[in-house]
Amino acid sequence: MKVIFLKDVKGMGKKGEIKNVADGYANNFLFKQGLAIEATPANLKALE
């Protein structure tokens, strides 16, 4: 799943980066902790 990092995550990515991560990792950790959001077309447009 493609995500946009909202904060730096050690060993994974930096704020503003777009990366592919495992679905479970994104849903169970990154999204719940507020560290990333899904890289949807609307979210990608908002990032620009």
Rank of each mutant, 00 (worst) to 15 (best):
M12W: 14
V3C: 03
G24P: 10
G24Q: 12
I4T: 02
E38S: 05
L35G: 01
V3R: 00
P41S: 13
G11F: 07
G16I: 00
I18M: 08
P41F: 12
G16H: 08
L35M: 09
K45R: 12
L47C: 09
L6F: 04
I37H: 02
I4L: 13
M1P: 04
A26P: 05
N20K: 14
L44K: 06
K2T: 09
G24A: 12
G16L: 05
K45H: 09
I37N: 03
K45G: 07
V3S: 00
G11T: 08
D8F: 05
G16N: 07
I18K: 02
K32Q: 10
A22M: 11
M1R: 08
N28M: 11
I18Q: 08
K45A: 15
G16P: 01
Q33M: 15
K2Q: 08
A39I: 04
K19V: 09
K2W: 15
F5K: 00
A39R: 00
V3M: 02
A39C: 08
G24R: 11
K32M: 08
V3H: 00
K15C: 11
D8Y: 04
F5Q: 00
I4S: 01
K2M: 14
L35E: 03
K7Q: 13
E48D: 13
Y25D: 08
N43C: 07
E38D: 05
M1E: 03
K2D: 12
G11P: 03
I4Q: 03
E17I: 05
K32Y: 10
A26G: 06
G11D: 10
G11W: 05
V3G: 00
E17M: 08
N28Q: 11
E17L: 04
I4G: 00
I4A: 02
G11Y: 08
A26S: 05
G16S: 02
G24W: 13
L6M: 04
K19F: 05
K15T: 10
A42K: 10
I37D: 02
M12C: 13
A42D: 12
I18L: 10
Y25M: 10
D23I: 14
F29T: 06
V9P: 00
A26W: 03
L6I: 15
N27E: 15
K19Q: 08
G34C: 12
V21R: 00
N43T: 09
L30A: 01
L6H: 00
L6G: 01
Q33A: 07
K45T: 05
F31H: 09
A22E: 14
G24T: 14
K15M: 11
Y25T: 09
L47V: 07
I18A: 04
N27H: 15
M12V: 15
Y25E: 13
M1K: 09
F5L: 15
L30P: 00
A39W: 08
K7V: 14
G16F: 09
G11H: 11
A46Q: 13
V9C: 08
G16D: 07
N27K: 14
E17Q: 13
P41D: 14
L47S: 08
P41G: 11
N28P: 07
K14Q: 09
L30Q: 01
A36R: 00
I18E: 04
G13L: 01
N20V: 10
A46D: 12
E38T: 06
L6D: 00
F31T: 04
K45L: 15
A39T: 02
M1F: 13
P41I: 10
G13E: 01
M1V: 13
N20Q: 14
A36Y: 02
K10Q: 15
I37E: 07
A39Q: 02
F5Y: 08
G13P: 00
Q33T: 06
F31I: 12
M12D: 09
I37R: 07
D8A: 09
I37A: 03
K7F: 12
L6P: 01
K2S: 14
G34Y: 06
A42T: 04
G13H: 05
V3D: 00
D23V: 15
V9N: 01
K10E: 13
D23M: 13
K32V: 11
N28K: 11
G13Q: 01
V3K: 00
Q33C: 14
V21C: 11
F31E: 01
N43Q: 05
L30T: 02
V9Y: 09
G16R: 04
F31M: 04
A39K: 01
K19T: 08
A42I: 07
N20Y: 14
D8H: 06
K14T: 11
L47F: 12
A42L: 09
K14F: 12
G34L: 08
F5T: 00
G34V: 02
E38F: 06
A42C: 15
E17R: 02
N28R: 10
G11N: 03
V21W: 04
